[in-house]
């Protein structure tokens, strides 16, 4: 994110992702409450559906972006030595990317299987 865009863009993105996270979380909750997949086969069929898998991928991406903006805000607020802040941002950023890749891998495997 460029220096110039890191104010408004981050703020707007945080709100946009929050809306999607809220809506999809509600959908997930309703599915798990009222139409929970009975077993592994059903679960795979549900998650492997093209609409659900793309929506789930978008959900994971939204959670990661939302988390990145939030954690970045906390670090900007409290961690002032620039080397420590950069190191922490790096650790958080790489962890989030790793989680995203892991989730994407799982979703792709479900689609392929």
């Amino acid at each position: 994110m460029s220096r110039k865009a890191s104010g408004l863009k981050a703020w707007a993105l945080q709100r946009l992702t929050a809306i999607y996270i809220g809506l999809f979380s509600l959908y997930l909750l309703l599915v798990l409450l009222f139409a929970a997949p009975g077993g592994y086969i059903e679960w795979k069929a549900w998650l492997g559906g093209s609409l659900v898998s793309v929506a789930m991928l978008l959900y994971v991406l939204s959670v990661l972006m939302h988390a990145w903006i939030g954690v970045r805000d906390v670090l900007i607020d409290y961690i002032h030595p620039i080397a420590i802040r950069a190191a922490l941002l790096g650790v958080v950023g790489l962890s989030l990317v790793a989680m995203g890749l892991w989730a994407a891998q799982a979703l792709i495997l479900v689609r392929l299987a």
Partner: peptide
Amino acid sequence: ALEGPYKLFRCH
């Protein structure tokens, strides 16, 4: 002038 992460957007 208010853009960027600090001047305005430190407000939570």
